[in-house]
Design a protein around this nucleic acid. Structure first.
Length: 310
DNA sequence: TCCGGCACCTGTACGC
DNA sequence: TGCGTACAGGTGCCGG
């Protein structure tokens, strides 16, 4: 499942593979892949033609391509008419255009030869004017998607609410610790809230909690600041390690732009290890149902709080 | 405003 | 063999 380290690996590959190139044609073969592009698939294909990719950027698990050149989105409408996620206007702000993407559960952005056979779940194909390798969005479960959106300031408008991630140099540790302790929820639910801290998904939430010795159902308001700070440090460490290993992969659903899988799954200590002994204390790892998914914990290292909350 | 539950998807594994 | 069901889970929406 692509979380921050996996998305960053993909971003770096895309930066090398498509930055500076101009889009020739776009083909959408599954409308759901562009469902966030409200004007529809035909418009999506049309507005991208002739645009040059200036840079490939990321916040949390979102990726976007900054588009240079003429600004089709602002051509016919004044900047203050541009919609945002909350309906707010941004009169006077710097407005640009970006191709925004999210990999969802199973999305892949591949840079491949135009003569390569189409993948079974190929959803969007982007060809470039130089005739070189093309960009493909492949997504089995179609939780991911692409959209052409306005950028306001440094961010695409639809993701203005996404918090910085722990690997971002401008991430504010003190503000995070304070905000986490103000919440009235379970600590894992808070870690998965992308408006509080971005980039953490189910795998790295479980790994971070295990490293910090905190149970996922620990109420946030009972966390001492020192524990909250330690948890953040572990989240940062586990994602840094995963990034260095090229990301985590359990199967072929997560791959880099070259189609290669990461190796970090060999380094996971608790996620997916139900029934196996904890590498730290040898207590058997357990799996609990949580938020319609799974939580893996070591009952020895991460005792369940008396007052659990999730 | 904050919090929790759930729909959205498809391929795979497993039990009967 | 074939069918039904559980499971994987990030995000956004909606109701309380």
């Amino acid at each position: 499942m692509p979380e921050l380290p996996e998305v960053e690996v993909v971003r770096r590959g895309l930066e090398r593979g498509v930055a500076g190139r101009t889009i020739a044609t776009v083909t959408v073969s599954h409308d759901r892949a562009v469902r966030r592009h409200l004007a529809g698939a035909g418009d999506f294909e049309a507005v991208l033609r002739g645009r040059t990719i200036a840079a490939v950027r990321r916040r949390g698990k979102y990726l976007w391509f900054d588009l240079a050149g003429r600004d089709l989105l602002t051509h016919d409408r004044a900047p203050h008419d541009l919609p945002t996620h909350d309906g707010a206007s941004h009169h006077g702000a710097t407005v640009g255009t970006a191709l925004l993407g999210h990999l969802g559960m199973s999305g892949q952005l591949l840079v491949v030869s135009p003569v390569k056979e189409p993948e079974k779940h190929l959803r969007v194909r982007i060809l470039f004017t130089d005739g070189g390798r093309e960009l493909r969005f492949v997504d089995q479960r179609t939780f991911g998607g692409l959209a052409v959106v306005p950028t306001v300031g440094e961010l695409p408008a639809p993701i203005a609410h996404i918090a910085r991630d722990p690997l971002d140099s401008d991430f504010d540790d003190d503000a995070f610790v304070a905000a986490l302790r103000r919440r009235r929820t379970g600590v894992k639910r808070a870690l998965l809230d992308q408006t509080l801290v971005s980039g953490i998904g189910n795998i790295y939430a479980d790994e971070s909690l295990w490293r910090a010795g905190v149970h996922y159902a620990r109420p946030t308001e009972t966390l001492p600041a020192s524990t909250a700070r330690a948890l953040l440090a572990e989240a940062r460490a586990v994602m840094t390690d995963a990034l260095a290993a090229g990301g985590t992969s359990f199967d072929s659903l997560y791959v880099s732009v070259n189609g290669e899988s990461g190796l970090f799954d060999r380094s996971l200590n608790v996620y997916g290890r139900a029934g196996q002994p904890c590498v730290r204390c040898e207590t058997v790892i357990v799996r609990d149902a949580f938020m319609n998914r799974s939580s893996f914990t070591c009952p020895g290292c991460q005792p369940r709080p008396r007052r659990a909350r999730w």
